[in-house]
């Protein structure tokens, strides 16, 4: 397996409470990895360690390593903003920035000064809106506020915004949980289209979605990784009793 993200001996504490216990996993490159498990099992916590979002909340402590392409993102010399540029995030609720649709997509590119002139920005905005499947719907009103879009469109806009800074990894924290079924499907098919170019890690609480998307599955329970294996193995022949119960319990 060509591992893109390697997690080694990862422990996370919220204050005195341990949220992740000795996690050791490898996440394959250019596939969709789905993290699942009952709520409160540490799925989102694990995901947030990949773009160092965990340190945004007070009182979290982390030991161990998360390697992206062999480099520890918690290393001393590492620039956290560079990590977040490389590892994009699609949040649970769409969070359009309070600016126009165009500026939302261009925001990250401006932050990193990635393009030379207006035309390059314009082309790039169009490009990423097309990838996110939003261009057709919004090209006539690029300068409307992003909040004027429907929730589903907003989430695709956030996808475009995330892709625009040219990440290699996309994280999704239950990215469809706030959306209606059709919008969810739309996002899911975007993610499937993109998996050839990006390593994707999705947290989900619906087993159906996991089955639709997953190439690789990580099953977690009470802060521990119980099982991590290719999707067909986990779904057809789970090795652990807990995984089996979880898979059955939801059917």
């Amino acid at each position: 397996m060509d591992a893109h993200i390697q997690v080694k001996n990862l422990n996370v504490y919220y204050g005195k409470q341990q949220a992740l216990k000795d996690v050791n996993i490898e996440i394959p490159k250019n596939q969709i990895t789905v993290i699942m498990g009952p709520s409160g099992c540490g799925k989102t916590t694990l995901l947030k360690t990949f773009n160092r979002f965990l340190e945004l909340s007070d009182g979290t402590q982390l030991t161990g390593e998360v390697l992206v392409d062999g480099q520890n993102i918690y290393g001393r010399e590492v620039d956290v903003t560079e990590v977040r540029k490389v590892v994009g995030l699609l949040a649970q609720r769409p969070s359009p920035l309070p600016m126009s649709i165009y500026d939302n997509v261009a925001y990250g590119m401006h932050i990193h000064k990635m393009k030379k002139d207006r035309k390059e920005y314009k082309d790039a905005v169009r490009h990423y809106l097309e990838i996110a499947g939003l261009w057709e719907e919004v090209h006539k009103r690029l300068h409307d506020p992003a909040t004027s879009l429907s929730i589903g469109q907003q989430q695709r806009l956030c996808l475009a915004r995330g892709l625009a800074v040219e990440p290699v990894i996309i994280l999704g924290d239950e990215p469809t949980s706030a959306l209606d079924p059709i919008s969810s499907q739309n996002i899911e098919s975007r993610l499937l289209d993109l998996k050839q170019q990006y390593t994707t890690v999705i947290v989900t609480h619906t087993l159906r979605q996991a089955k639709r998307l997953a190439d690789y599955v990580i099953y977690m329970y009470l802060g521990e990784v119980i099982e991590a294996a290719p999707a067909h193995e986990v779904f057809t022949n789970p090795q652990h009793e807990r995984t089996k119960q979880y898979l059955e319990g939801l059917f």
Binding site: D69, Q71, I73, E77, V78, D79, T81, E82, I111, V168
Partner: peptide, 14 residues
């Protein structure tokens, strides 16, 4: 394929 995640002091960091 390595990514340059080392901190290189750009204006924004200053």
């Amino acid at each position: 394929m390595g990514f340059l995640m080392k901190k290189h002091w750009q204006r924004r960091h200053l």
